[in-house]
Design a binder for these strands. Structure first.
Length: 425
RNA sequence: GGAGGGAUGGCAGAGCGGUUGAAUGCACUAGUCUUGAAAACUAGCAUGGUUUAACGACCAUCCAGGGUUCGAAUCCCUGUCCCUCCA
């Protein structure tokens, strides 16, 4: 959520900022609503003041044993007037809120303007793309010939975009998860968090998935519905909802491993082959709660933490700066890490690291207390995948494949794989 | 499954429907005292919003949402969460 003051005081600026996002803002409507809001709010508060003052004097008069009937008569019509004013105010504030909630974050100045992922900028590349002296298989063929990946079983048990893993490949995915968690905890100073996989509306509102992106979520109906988390970002970031954090605790750095659930509405036909785009997948997520003046630096640092995993696994990747059109709703700036997939002969997203500035914090009412002023200030939130485990599994399979269809276990994963050095049928 | 009790400021914990945004203690901040520290004493210390050039004034908030009332932390209803006891 944007600063309401900014929207009010400089709607033209906000309009320009929204245009980079492909969103429009009706400045005349905002101005008109704001004018009405001001008048009605002042009126309402004046009436409230009148009511409070008379109630107080009635109390005083009564305690002195005076006749209060004349005072009661004088406020008899106040109640209705006040009720009407309050209803008006609620109505107009609801209107303004629904506009505000639908506005995306203002993009950082260094985010390039562009329409879609074609205009993203490659900032750097790491690793060398492997040369195979045999016909490269993708993870689907590899997995099926190793009897470790079964899409038919996934479809039978649940439906399209579900998969089952078994045997050493299932273990490899678990090994990746453990390796990522341990690295972030031991090397990068994160605190592990275990969190609910079902969350309420308030949490999803706080991180920006609601109200605008409900169709991307799996919802369990009910009076107060639960939603399956699309990312651990939601429950982990909501740890600080409605909280004022002590300065000495900052920055907070959490790592969590969770499954993620996405409806993939609007992705019909995309990535139907393989386990690139699933309704359910594993992810290790990094979340940082930081002071405003640290968020840029720590965003870089968090991205590096994700890169360290790819480097430890010796997986070639590139770092992309997302252009305006490809940057998500809540982010001010996003880096994507794209891993090389030999089976697709291309780079594919494996991590997305975003700085949200105070956009989520304002929705979450997440603040820290600045000891200099003694006052609470909004935190900045940063998060990134570190990494998407399912896609990392694919990347390891395809990059570590051998001529006979077996898969070498990366060195750093060996401690997690028992005696297995190579995955074979 | 049945019966009760509770939710109040960073924490603990008071609060007959009436100048209660809220006693008190702890914590915290500043000061006095001290060579320094501790102790003691003094003062300050919730959050959000409206309005103002500013000082300030005002409004809202005692789990959430409704209701009763001139007036609600306090009474009523609904919900959420916590706890205790019985089976």
């Amino acid at each position: 959520m944007l600063d309401p003051q900014l929207l009010r005081n400089d709607p033209e600026y906000v309009k320009k900022a929204m245009q980079r996002h492909g969103a429009d803002l009706d400045v005349d409507l905002i101005t008109a609503l704001e004018t009405r809001r001001k008048a009605i709010q002042v009126k309402t508060q004046t009436l409230q003041n009148e009511r409070n003052t008379s109630a107080k004097s009635i109390g005083i008069a009564k305690s002195k044993g005076e006749d209060i009937q004349p005072l009661l008569d004088s406020v008899s019509q106040l109640g209705d007037e006040l009720k009407a004013a309050e209803a008006d105010l609620n109505d107009i504030q609801a209107q303004m809120q629904s506009i505000q909630y639908a506005l995306p974050n203002i993009l950082s100045d260094d985010v390039p303007t562009g329409k879609d992922e074609e205009q993203n900028i490659e900032l750097r590349k790491w690793g060398s793309i492997p040369n195979f002296d045999f016909d490269v298989k993708d993870h689907v063929d590899l997995g099926q010939s190793l009897s470790g990946i079964d899409f038919e079983a996934g479809a039978k048990i649940a439906g399209a975009r579900f998969v089952t893993l078994s045997g050493s490949l299932a273990r490899l995915q678990r090994a990746l998860t453990q390796f990522m968690l341990d690295t972030h905890i031991d090397q990068h100073g994160y605190r592990e968090a275990y969190v609910p996989y079902l969350v309420n509306k308030d949490s999803l509102f706080g991180t920006g998935q609601l109200p605008k992106f409900e169709e991307d979520l799996f919802k369990m109906s009910g009076d107060s519905p639960y939603y399956l988390i699309p990312t651990a970002e939601v429950p982990v970031t909501n740890l600080v909802r409605d909280a004022i954090i002590n300065a000495d605790k900052m920055p907070l750095k959490y790592v969590a491993h969770t499954p993620c659930f996405r409806s993939e509405a609007g992705a019909y036909g995309r990535d139907m082959r393989g386990m690139i785009r699933q309704h359910q997948f594993e992810k290790v997520e990094l979340v940082q709660i930081v002071k405003a003046d640290e968020s840029e630096r720590l965003h870089e640092e968090l991205t590096q933490h994700a890169e360290n995993i790819l480097q430890a696994l010796n997986l070639p990747y590139r770092l992309m700066l997302l252009c305006s059109g490809d940057t998500g709703f809540s982010a001010t700036k996003t880096y994507d890490l794209e891993v090389w997939l030999p089976g697709q002969d291309s780079y594919r997203e494996i991590s997305s690291c975003s700085n949200f500035n105070d956009f989520q914090a304002r929705r979450l009412k997440a603040r820290w207390r600045n000891p200099e002023t003694g006052k609470p200030e909004l935190v900045h939130t940063i998060n990134g995948s570190g990494l998407a485990v399912g896609r990392t599994l694919i990347a390891v399979m395809e990059n570590y494949q051998q001529a006979d269809g077996s898969i070498k276990v990366p060195d750093v994963l060996k401690p997690y794989m028992g005696a297995i050095e190579t995955i074979t049928l």
